[in-house]
Structures are given as structure tokens and as C-alpha cells.
Design a binder for these strands. Structure first.
Lengths: 194, 194
DNA sequence: CCACTTGCTTAACATTTATCAACGCTATTT
DNA sequence: AAATAGCGTTGATAAATGTTAAGCAAGTGG
């Protein structure tokens, strides 16, 4: 169950985990199973855990005044789940996080995570790396959002995250792109007539 | 000249800089003056320096196939300048960085910066904090971009960065919001008739 | 096995936003 | 002072995208 998490820390950090460190991690993270359609967090919650996806998938989304949903990001194996802002600042989140498949999660309370970061160098290094990577990835998404048309954003998604198309319904892909399902359906139709 | 930079490190990190550390910083950063309309970087460049703005302002933008410009972000006193992705990955940038006012910058080559990060705890802590803050800020902008209309994005900008409106022409505000200057002009007109 | 939900598509129509063109005002340059 | 460029505005029109409604196929849960 923990193998993916160990691999993840070692690969991101470029460091090796000792047996002791692995035992420490195993005793600190707790397994949590959530079934499809269950919620990991809801609007207004304060995100008190780091959460690593071992198996399964999820979406994080907001709901606006008109009742429309907007998917900020997806999660799947080897990704972290939950609102980073709420976790870091301990403020109520604006987002819901709903499982899209039956999932196995490894979760750890914030205080324990902070102790782990101090204790295990590979984890500290991993956090640094993912903060940087996330800053880069989000900048790219902003660039796409303000400078590309709906069609170009879709093309870019196909290239960047082809797995999304296999795994998530088109309605949700549309929401992730910031367009309606109807518009996405028409775009795709235009590309492959018939 | 260095006072703003020292304050910045101390405030972001919550730590204090010793006299030795300050001297080290002074001897590592170099002053660079750029006049309005000069470029700090151009598309295709690899960003080899960290750059702190002491005085002045700038914009980072891309140019698409149709020749339209899209402003990814602004910079002003107490902000860092340059494409973070290009700096971190040492890849050619897609963005131009142009000064919007005569500016005083403090720059330091990447390798020197990395040595500073290892040597000065307050700088290491600052980098951690700004990576986190930038991840949070960019997530908020993504949320705005995919879930808000042009008018709502403008309202949100007015609240979040009122200084932008004082300092940058409307054409650029529009580009930052991902809309045309004409659309922005009409939005504003609708709000304050006459 | 049936009722129900979910996902995707299509059509007609409405709204938002972009495009193109023109004008006036300021500031800057010559 | 004249010429120029930058900035904001406005109008007419076009393009992109959203809205509402309907239908069908496939999957799901009782």
C-alpha cells in the first residue's frame, strides 16, 4: 500500500528513504478508503490533512451563484488531494473535493506532516520540488486561460493530460476548461466530422 | 538601495539578517538600471538571473500567432521579475519582460542565488514562503479565469490589486484580464454611466 | 429486469465578447 | 508649433460561447 508513496518521495527528491524512515512514514500516514461520489472535503471545511492518492480519482470544484460547477483540478494516483490554500492557511475552503472512483488514500494530519518534513530530508526536498512544479504548472494554465480560445485550450489539454480524456466524462473536461459541455461537444465534432 | 531587499527577506522569513549576511547579499546582488520600454528578457531567452524590483514596474507577456499580446503578470517594487519556469528549468522562455517605468533592479546569477539560499537561512525560508504563496495566488487566478465572466474578473482585480489601476494603462489591464481594451472600456462605462 | 440516472449530442436562440474602423484628447518628440 | 504616437471611447457588425430544451444510448441501482 505504501510502495507508491515511497517511490514518489524518492523520485521527487532524488534521495533514498532508510528503513527507519519508511517505518516512520507507515506509522504516521493512515489509510482511508472513499467510495465513488463520497466527499473528501466540502465548501467551508478547513483542510486539516495532507492526502495522497494511492488508487482512484477525484475532482476539486467550486459552485457559483448560478449553481454552476467549475473544476479547478483533478486528482489521480500519485497526486495530492485537497485545497492547498485551505491546508496552508487553515482557512475555510471554497471547494468541494469529490471522489470520481472508489479510492485508497493515505492521509496525515497537518501537524504530523510538519514533523515528518522536519525529520525526513526526502520529504522536505519533495515538498520544495512540488511547490516549484505547481507554481510552474499553474502559470502555464493561467497562460492558457487568458490567451487561448476554447478550442486551443482543449487541444492543449489533449497534449498535456491525455489521461484525463480516458478517465473523466466530457462534462467534467468542459468544466475544467471553463466552457459548457455543449461547446466542447461541438468543438470535438468539428474536429472529427461524423 | 538594499534596504527594501533586506526588509523583504526579514519580513517573508520571519528571521533576522546578521550584518555579515547583509554584507554577503550586498556583494552578491548587482544593481541594474533599466529605462521605460527597455526589455529585461525576450522570448527565447533563458532566464539566468533572479531579479528583485527596488523601484519601477514591468509586465511579462506573450505574443500569439495573431500578434496579440497577453500579459501574464505585472511586477513592481518588492516583487521578483522574470519567467520563473525558464529560471527554474533553464529553458527558453515564451515571454517578454518589458519595463513600464524607469526602474532599479537588483539581480543575481542563478548559481550565486543558489549559494545564497544554502548560506543564508532567511533567504531559504523566504523562497519556501514565496513558492507557497505563488501556488496559492495562481490557483486563485485560475479559479477566476475559468469561473468568472469578464466583468466579475475585473471586479475581482479591483479588489485584489487596486494599485494596478492607478499605475497601468487600461489596455494592459484588459490584456491581463484576457479581454480586449474595448470590452473593458464598455464594462467600466456600464458601472459609472457618464 | 425495469426504472432511473448519467453522458453526450443536436437545434434554435440569446448573450457575451471580439473585430474593425473612426474620433478626440494628451503627452511626447521633432 | 507641428507631427506623431499612445490611450480611451464609441458604433456597427461578426464570431464565439452560453442557454434552454429535447432526445437517445448506455450504464446503474433497486
Amino acid at each position: 500500500m505504501f510502495e507508491l508513496l515511497f517511490q514518489y518521495f524518492e523520485q521527487k527528491s532524488g534521495l533514498t528513504l532508510s528503513t527507519t524512515e519508511k517505518e516512520l512514514i507507515e506509522s504516521t500516514f493512515k489509510l482511508k478508503r472513499l467510495r465513488k461520489k463520497q466527499y473528501f472535503q466540502q465548501e467551508g471545511d478547513i483542510c486539516k490533512h495532507m492526502c495522497f492518492i494511492v488508487r482512484g480519482a477525484a475532482r476539486m470544484y467550486s459552485v457559483d451563484d448560478k449553481g454552476h460547477e467549475h473544476i479547478i483540478r483533478f486528482g489521480m494516483e500519485g497526486w495530492w488531494l485537497g485545497d492547498y490554500e485551505s491546508y496552508m492557511l487553515q482557512t475555510p475552503t471554497r471547494f468541494h473535493v469529490e471522489m470520481l472512483e472508489n479510492s485508497d488514500l493515505l492521509i496525515v494530519p497537518k501537524e504530523h506532516m510538519e514533523r515528518l518534513i522536519e525529520t525526513v530530508p526526502a520529504i522536505a526536498a519533495t515538498i520544495k520540488v512540488i511547490d516549484k512544479q505547481s507554481a510552474i504548472a499553474t502559470q502555464q494554465r493561467i497562460h492558457a486561460a487568458i490567451s487561448l480560445s476554447a478550442e486551443e485550450r482543449y487541444d492543449s489539454l489533449v497534449k498535456t493530460y491525455p489521461a484525463f480524456l480516458q478517465r473523466f466524462p466530457q462534462t467534467m473536461i468542459a468544466s475544467y476548461l471553463g466552457i459548457t459541455p455543449e461547446t466542447l461537444s461541438r468543438l470535438r465534432n468539428k474536429k472529427t466530422p461524423h
